[in-house]
């Protein structure tokens, strides 16, 4: 059973992690935990390092525990994320291969499932990732990943099914709520509102406020057409982390949505390297290519 489930010792830690309160995860005192829970807790802390882009910290811990499957999995993921941040394509491929290998060997290990699943999903091996993750035994993290992969593949129906079955056994667990909200954001209609409630609850309680939750709230508001409210939430997020690329990207979307052309034009260059900017740049090329098909004549 999942050691993070509602009655487990690690509930708080797990909740912190998914509320994105990574510093709180890292400063969590592991000493009073029972021995069987120490390992999952440590892995969770390592994942918090990864979330904070502190790869070297994670890697050094893993190095000193080399040979233990869980730590190896973390190490692979850390290397993958590091490589991805640097745009180092060959390292990414290498990490993917490592992940695949470890998955075949130790596919029943929950840590391997989650971390290697992440790497595989991130390197376009979604089917392999799904196969690996489906072997989970009551791990909500795995379920959340599965849902996200389904959504990335635009399989709303499967994502929904997964969320529903998770809701049955995990009930009101925070992660289920969040994952359900991801699904809801795709589904739309009244579901937007439910997603908004979940995100807003997280974002507006001072204890659980984080950039991610604020951003999620802002996005749900954008989808609901409440641009002003969304702007306020985004501003809050930007105050917390002015350099966060996702915040900037969504700010650009919001400005565009609101028809604020000049401000949007100003915001765009700030986005240099991010995936969103790359996508836009690609689209621009596509546009110019499409223009080529027409040969306008101009009068003198």
């Amino acid at each position: 059973m999942d050691p993070f489930s509602a009655d487990g010792e690690l509930t708080t830690l797990h909740t912190y992690f998914h509320q994105c309160l990574y510093p709180a995860v890292l400063s969590y005192d592991l000493s009073p935990l029972s021995d069987s829970n120490k390992l999952p807790a440590t892995i969770l802390q390592l994942r918090a390092h990864l979330a904070l882009n502190q790869y070297s910290e994670a890697l050094s811990v893993c190095a000193s525990n080399k040979g233990k499957v869980d730590f190896d999995a973390v190490a692979i993921c850390a290397r993958y994320m590091q490589a991805k941040d640097r745009g180092d394509g060959s390292s990414v491929t290498k990490a993917s291969e490592e992940a695949s290998a470890l998955a075949t060997k130790e596919g029943d290990n929950a840590t391997v499932q989650i971390l290697c699943g992440t790497v595989l999903a991130g390197t376009e091996n979604e089917d392999e990732a799904l196969e690996l993750l489906s072997r989970h035994q009551g791990s909500l993290d795995a379920v959340a990943l599965i849902i996200q992969i389904h959504l990335q593949q635009n399989r709303l129906d499967l994502a929904k099914k997964e969320a529903q079955s998770a809701r049955k056994w995990a009930q009101d667990n925070l992660l289920v709520n969040i994952a359900e909200s991801w699904v809801a954001m795709r589904e739309g209609g009244e579901q937007y509102q439910s997603a908004y409630y979940v995100f807003e609850e997280l974002a507006q309680a001072p204890a659980t406020q984080s950039v991610k939750s604020l951003l999620s709230q802002a996005i749900s508001e954008m989808h609901l057409g409440r641009l002003e409210e969304s702007e306020a939430a985004l501003k809050q997020a930007a105050e917390l982390e002015p350099e966060n690329e996702l915040v900037k990207a969504n700010q650009l979307v919001l400005l565009t949505l609101a028809g604020k052309r000049d401000e949007a034009a100003k915001a765009k260059p700030e986005l240099e390297k991010s995936g969103f900017a790359q996508d836009l740049a690609e689209k621009k090329k596509e546009f110019q290519a499409a223009c080529e098909r027409y040969q306008p004549k101009f009068a003198a």
Binding site: L115, V119, Q148, W182, L215
Partner: peptide, 10 residues
């Protein structure tokens, strides 16, 4: 819009 989800995934 870009909704942040799991750590390590886009």
């Amino acid at each position: 819009t870009l909704l942040p989800a799991s750590v390590g995934l886009s």
